[in-house]
Write a protein that binds this DNA or RNA. Structure first.
Lengths: 131, 131
DNA sequence: CCTTTTACCTACTATGTCAATAGGTATTTA
DNA sequence: TAAATACCTATTGACATAGTAGGTAAAAGG
């Protein structure tokens, strides 16, 4: 299940896509528009900046803005930054220790199939489709 | 993400489908074959019995068995019993309080679309396909 | 230079869930 | 009556979630 963190991240990105004219938007504005705790958003936005999905500038006139156009962001990459992994089962997360049962696991093919479906869904869906 | 609880439930069901000849299989056997803590399985199996996906009988010669044939179980119903909800976001879980933002939510259509995909996947997939 | 506005940083916390474990009681068969 | 089994209640340690609190650093305007 996608947590609020991932959902909030997506909403911040959508908000920026909608309301930015190229200048920087302060987080305070976004928090008020989206009615999300600004303090909590700070944590989320920081991760988006680290991942280079956003650019942040301090000081008066500062704030955040997108670094690409909305059709160049996939929903998948936004969620992956904040959720860590979108894998449907632990053994399919990247960096997971290899499952000793993988060989001969009756359920692995099903998990892989679904995992692929979800991955495709999220990475084909662009931010621009959510405006 | 599907937890071990749901994954174990599925493996118990598969185990029963594979090794039962109509008689009752004691949990001890299943736990040993699947290398899962018997104590933990007790919790899981109890829920499957409550949901009438399994039948349990106490005493010598007792154990558990399926109540239908494997092609009459969907993976979805098995997972729903143990996971509670398969919804991809909280607001789409059944029994969720109505989201005040639903009207005009930019992301809801996407969540609904994916939710439907996952639901279909799990409910069309039958236990018999995992043997 | 000083003040304001903003991002950025570290730390803490309450609540809940996960994945069990512990130690029993009830039931059925031989 | 004894053994094997399911079934029941309670507890636990570790971790994640969803925040809150209280600062420091940076940039711009006057």
């Amino acid at each position: 299940m996608i947590s609020t963190k991932g959902r909030y991240a997506l909403r911040v990105m959508i908000d920026l896509a909608k309301y930015s004219d190229g200048s920087y938007i302060p987080l305070k504005e976004i928090a008020e528009r989206e009615k999300i705790s600004k303090k909590y958003l700070e944590i989320i936005v920081k991760e988006l900046v680290s991942a280079k999905l956003l650019e942040g500038v301090s000081g008066k006139g500062g704030g955040y803005k997108l670094v690409r156009s909305p059709d160049e962001y996939s929903v998948g990459e936004i969620l992956e930054v904040t959720e860590g992994s979108l894998a449907i089962v632990a053994c399919l997360a990247k960096g997971a220790e290899e499952c000793p049962r993988a060989e001969g696991c009756d359920t692995l093919p099903m998990w892989s199939e679904l995992n692929q479906m979800i991955h495709d869904f999220f990475f084909k869906k662009k931010l621009s489709e959510l405006l």
